[in-house]
Simulated assay, not measured.
Amino acid sequence: MTDKPLVEIRNLKKQFHVGSSFFGRNPKYLKAVDGVDLTINRGETLGLVGESGCGKSTLARTLIRLYEPTSGEISFDGQEISQLDQKQLMPFRKRMQMIFQDPYASLNGRMTVRDLIAEPLEIAQLGDDNSRTERVHELLEIVGLNKDHASRFAHEFSGGQRQRIGIARAIALNPELVICDEPISALDVSIQAQVVNMLEDLQKKFGLTYLFITHDLSMVRHISDRIGVMYLGKIVELADNDELYENPKHPYTRALLASIPIADPVEARKRVIEEMQGEIPSPIDMPSGCRFRSRCPLATPKCAEEEPELNELTSGHFAACHYAEP
């Protein structure tokens, strides 16, 4: 890992139009990503955690331009890409790839494994049929499968094997950035560790940079160098791996960490849980001030009047809370 940024996001927003009143007046927008600033350094794994619906996957898909950003800047290796058209974006497509959450839905069941993995090579117009087949065989061996699997169809494989195929497809073009959008959540627990270990091996071998999105707070600590916590379209805390777990600053982060199961019942009873009240507010109708205040045990009138900024409390540790202390 280096301190040189590969990806820099500045005030990124992604809104979806969800309706309007009669005659098209008063349009309503779902603010899935609402002003995110984030840097991903070359060679690191940045973990991104938060509840369902907080905007993690939308942020990832907007970053690699699967979704068009509403506003903001996306810089990849020093090049601003948020305003590029599809033709201008093509060279960057090879350098940014994604592993999707559901290996059953992300692979076309009508295509053989060979065709699934070779498709990015064909789109990028790299090599001929023979060289692409050789590359597919090489990739299958890299992810722990064998070349005989190339002639089979996706439905003939288990979930873990399908995700390996998805990973082989993602690294086919030798990308620099790989976005892992909950790549283990649909897998059996016994398979999850194997896939994560393989991702770590691939990172060391090819110098990959990961944005790793997950709900599994134990797993994200294992794989990540830094961790960002997202709530209702914004990053509310960002810190190095160990620092975040040992010294969380934001009450939302503390509540998430308190939800991690403890195997020892004696230790579990000693733990003080900072509970969250109610449900996550609607991203269509955001609360005023701090968007976490309606669920926060520390909320005061100031929280309803003023939205906290993401400030650096200690070196490399950022939090967006009026009452977070260094």
Results as ranks from 00 to 15, higher is better:
R93M: 12
R132Q: 01
Q79F: 14
R95F: 11
L177F: 10
G144Y: 10
M96D: 11
G127V: 05
Q163W: 11
S158L: 01
R169H: 00
L121T: 02
I99Q: 08
H149Q: 07
Q83I: 07
V113G: 00
S82W: 06
E80Q: 15
L139D: 01
Q86N: 15
Q97F: 04
L89D: 05
V113H: 00
E176D: 13
Q79H: 14
N108A: 02
V143G: 01
L126S: 06
K94E: 12
Q86F: 09
L121I: 05
G109K: 14
V136G: 00
T112N: 02
F92N: 10
D148I: 02
G78M: 11
R132V: 01
M111I: 04
A118R: 03
N146L: 12
L139K: 01
L177T: 06
D148Y: 07
A170Y: 03
Q101L: 07
E138H: 14
G127Y: 05
R169P: 00
D148V: 03
N174D: 14
G166P: 06
E134F: 04
Q88K: 15
H137W: 08
T112H: 00
I81C: 08
A124H: 15
D115I: 00
A105L: 10
Q79E: 14
S106D: 06
F92S: 08
A170R: 04
Q86G: 04
M98D: 01
S82R: 07
A118Q: 09
P120D: 01
T133R: 15
M90E: 14
K94A: 13
R164V: 04
F153P: 02
Q101G: 10
H149P: 03
K94S: 13
M96A: 06
E176K: 12
E119C: 02
G144T: 08
N146C: 03
E122N: 08
L116A: 08
T133G: 11
Q163L: 08
A105W: 12
Q83W: 08
P120E: 00
R110K: 08
R162S: 06
N174H: 14
R95V: 12
